[in-house]
Simulated assay, not measured.
Amino acid sequence: MAVELKTREHIRGIRKAGRIVASCHKALSQRLAPGVTTREIDRFVERFMLDRGATPAQKGYKGYPYATCASVNDVVCHGFPDTEPLESGDVVTIDMVADVNGWKADSAWTYIIGKSTTATEKLLRVAKQAMQDGIKMAQPGHYIGDIGHAVQVRAEREGYNVVRMFVGHGIGRQMHEYPNVEHYGPPGQGVKLEEGMVLTVEPIITSGRADVYIARDGWTARTVDGSWSAQFEHTIAITKDGPIVLTRWD
């Protein structure tokens, strides 16, 4: 299967969607608090995008009913927004994809609700650093395996595991494009990275076992052992000068 390389014009289109995603995450960082529900957050995100000329690409994708995925504590990804109030100490990952004029950008971010613990702060810190380590390896001439290896080394060195069931991916006109971006494995393997590729790097890091199961709704993925997880995701473009993050906000 061939990789679709993006032109500068294409990347500008993805960047427009990325800026909306980034500004929405920044707004969420001020809204998420004990007592807020993820259903309220979902409505906020949908209205935020629509007001800025974007559409939430996840809504309706393969029948998914919401504008966001909202994954709390032991839910690793694809959690349904619900009416259960968030409690102090919870962690929640909000994953969103904006579409602007047919171009898409994707970013997930894990937030601590209210008061945190040292263990929770470390989990999030390592998960974010693992993503950043992976992004640094997204250089022309490197390989998909170099990204995944950097993520895995960071996570396991700190005593965590990478959830292997879910991967990053190419993105552009379609939400999920070739190639997949595994967040584990040996370096120097897989698809060779080229200028013009646009990918997501989105490792899910867990404090316990990496095994997960899918709930009866067909979407929600939880850790088998109940351990908590964190996920950070950016959409990046690979250029001759290295990776450019198209969803940066923090």
Rank of each mutant, 00 (worst) to 15 (best):
73 N>V: 09
64 Y>H: 12
205 I>D: 00
199 L>E: 09
72 V>S: 11
125 R>A: 15
88 S>T: 15
216 R>N: 14
19 R>Y: 04
8 R>Y: 11
102 G>V: 09
192 K>E: 15
179 P>A: 05
115 K>D: 10
212 V>F: 06
109 W>C: 03
213 Y>P: 12
226 G>I: 09
13 G>F: 00
106 D>P: 02
186 P>V: 05
228 W>M: 06
83 T>Q: 10
146 D>L: 04
17 A>W: 02
138 A>V: 03
105 A>E: 10
164 R>Y: 00
249 W>R: 09
64 Y>C: 07
16 K>D: 14
64 Y>W: 15
172 G>Q: 12
38 T>Y: 00
143 Y>G: 00
173 R>Y: 11
110 T>V: 12
56 P>M: 13
212 V>W: 03
118 T>S: 06
187 P>R: 11
242 G>P: 06
243 P>I: 00
80 F>M: 12
218 G>C: 13
96 M>C: 11
239 T>M: 07
82 D>G: 14
134 G>L: 02
127 A>T: 03
157 R>H: 10
192 K>T: 13
154 R>D: 07
7 T>H: 06
49 M>N: 05
156 E>K: 12
12 R>Q: 14
79 G>A: 10
192 K>P: 14
207 S>K: 05
250 D>R: 14
1 M>L: 12
175 M>A: 00
35 G>F: 11
60 G>F: 07
169 H>W: 01
9 E>R: 15
161 N>L: 04
86 L>S: 08
182 E>M: 01
1 M>A: 13
103 W>H: 12
92 V>L: 07
214 I>P: 01
62 K>C: 07
115 K>W: 01
211 D>A: 15
54 A>V: 13
20 I>S: 03
80 F>I: 02
24 C>P: 10
188 G>L: 05
241 D>G: 08
127 A>Y: 03
80 F>Q: 07
114 G>T: 08
192 K>D: 07
207 S>I: 01
183 H>A: 05
